[in-house]
Amino acid sequence: MNQTINVDQLNSALTSLRTLRLSVSHVFETLANGLRADHGEDGKEKFLLELQELLTNVNINLRDLEQTVTGLPIPTAPFNLGNTTYLSQETTQERQGLYTQLVNSYKWTDKIHEYSSFAHSLLSQNSLKRSYINSGSTKRRGKLQSTHNVSPLQVDNVINNIDRSYNDMKITISRPYASNAVVQINLSHVLKAVVAFKGLLMEWVMVRGYNETLELWTESRHHVFRKVTENAHAAMLHFYSPTLPELAVRSFMTWLHSYVNLFSEPCKKCGCHLHHTSLLPPAWRDFRTLEPFHDECKQ
């Protein structure tokens, strides 16, 4: 790995450069001041001696610098700074400090990312979750990519792939507000759902009836779809996995697809379509087996 620059070496080179500069400025300072009172009687001699000493200092420092610089590897290509190169073209005075701020904030986010991934792996070992733990997914902490800042193309790919794997579930993507996707799902003739995404993370779900218009913020007028919306929120939180966002979306869609038999399949526990008090069909689906249950019948 010759490409990566040894930071320690670079740092020592920079320090020696700084000391060289310091010693040179010392020389010029002494020269500018000329003879001073503390040089005494034969001030000329003393002044020359002092100057000579300072110049040898410069020499030593220069040699130091040369040594450290020859130790440095030669970069093969010019550094690619991405979009930040344009910052150098900034002409206004107060904005020229932006680059340092940028680098600092980058370091901060990098650290936060690192700490949070450590925290995530620690927290997932302690079973704070009240529902089933999908331990398989938490172990693989391979590549750490950001999940809320994904290119629209990638989001489209993930969702279109899911769309293709179901015949009776139609998924359409729209982007009414900037780059974040709002996904409409038509599940057979049973229900419609709308899911708001932030990058690849699901942020909001609303389920409404087949004969209703889709809206993100108004609840359905049917009791059963209000119940399904409530359960969909629980599922969205259950499947939430910032390290493997694609898996989370896919699992949620599989779960939502199991509502295709919302009205036709009786509850697995009591065997009835309607619960005797709520008069609702089984509006809950088990996260693993996808079996239908009444809210009151699941343990």
């Binding site: 003739h189 049973v190 087949y210 779809f225 009205f263 036709s264 009835c272 309607l274 069909p281």
Partner: peptide, 21 residues
């Protein structure tokens, strides 16, 4: 009338249960 559902096939079992009850 069961208002949330638009397909008789899917909802017939549920309606029968309700009517019987």
């Amino acid at each position: 009338e069961y208002r949330p559902c638009v397909m008789a096939n899917a909802v017939w079992g549920l309606l029968r249960e309700f009517l019987q009850g």
